[in-house]
C-alpha cells in the first residue's frame, strides 16, 4: 500500500489493525514513543504516566521507575502523576499498584496524584480498589504527605 494511502486512512480515523502493514509501523512508532519522564524533586522522584498504557509501556514504566529508584540516593517519596491517563482499567490499576509496591521495596513511599473525575467514578464502578496506594488531589498535598515542604527563597 502506498504511503499516501496509508496516511490518508490513518487521518480518517480508520484504525490500524484493519490496514495491512500499518500495525508494524505503529509498533515501531511505539518503540520510539516509549519514554517515561522521570524528574527529581528534592528527596522525591516525580514520574508522569503517559496518556495510554499498553502492556509494553506498563512494563517499561515499572522498569524505569525501579531503575531510577535503585540508583537514586536519599529518595523518600515517589509521586506518580496520572493526570494524563485518559482511562484506568483493571490492568492499569494493577500496574499502578505494583509500581507503588516496587517503590516500597526501595523504602520509598508512593503517592498517586491527579486522577481525573471521570476516571475516579469509573474505578469505583469497576470495583477496583486503589486503597492500598496512597493518593492525593494535588501535587502540593502529595508532597505534604511525603513530608516535603516547598520553601520560597527571596
Amino acid at each position: 500500500m502506498p504511503l499516501a494511502d496509508l496516511l490518508t486512512s490513518a487521518a480518517r480515523g480508520v484504525h490500524s489493525s484493519r490496514i495491512k502493514g500499518f500495525t508494524r509501523i505503529e509498533a515501531v512508532l511505539n518503540q520510539v514513543e516509549n519514554f517515561i519522564p522521570v524528574l527529581r524533586l528534592g528527596p522525591s522522584v516525580f514520574v508522569s504516566v503517559p496518556a495510554e498504557l499498553s502492556d509494553s509501556q506498563a512494563r517499561f514504566l515499572q522498569e524505569t521507575v525501579s531503575h531510577r529508584l535503585s540508583k537514586a540516593d536519599g529518595v523518600r517519596g515517589l509521586v506518580i502523576d496520572v493526570s494524563a491517563l485518559s482511562l484506568i482499567d483493571s490492568f492499569a490499576a494493577k500496574i499502578l499498584g505494583e509500581t507503588a509496591s516496587i517503590a516500597s521495596q526501595f523504602g520509598v513511599k508512593a503517592v498517586l496524584v491527579g486522577i481525573r473525575p471521570a476516571v475516579a467514578m469509573t474505578l469505583i464502578e469497576l470495583g477496583v480498589d486503589l486503597r492500598q496506594v496512597e493518593t492525593a488531589l494535588t501535587l502540593e498535598r502529595a508532597l505534604t504527605k511525603l513530608k516535603i515542604r516547598i520553601v520560597e527563597v527571596e
Partner: peptide, 28 residues
C-alpha cells in the same frame, strides 16, 4: 492481536461515542 490493539479499541470507542454520551460515560 497486539497490545497496542487494546489502545486502539479504547481510542475507537471514545471516538465513536464522543458527543453522544456524557464525558464520564465515554470513559466508562
Amino acid at each position: 492481536a497486539l497490545d497496542t490493539d487494546v489502545l486502539t479499541a479504547q481510542r475507537s470507542t471514545q471516538y465513536l461515542v464522543k458527543g453522544y454520551y456524557s464525558p464520564t460515560e465515554c470513559v466508562r
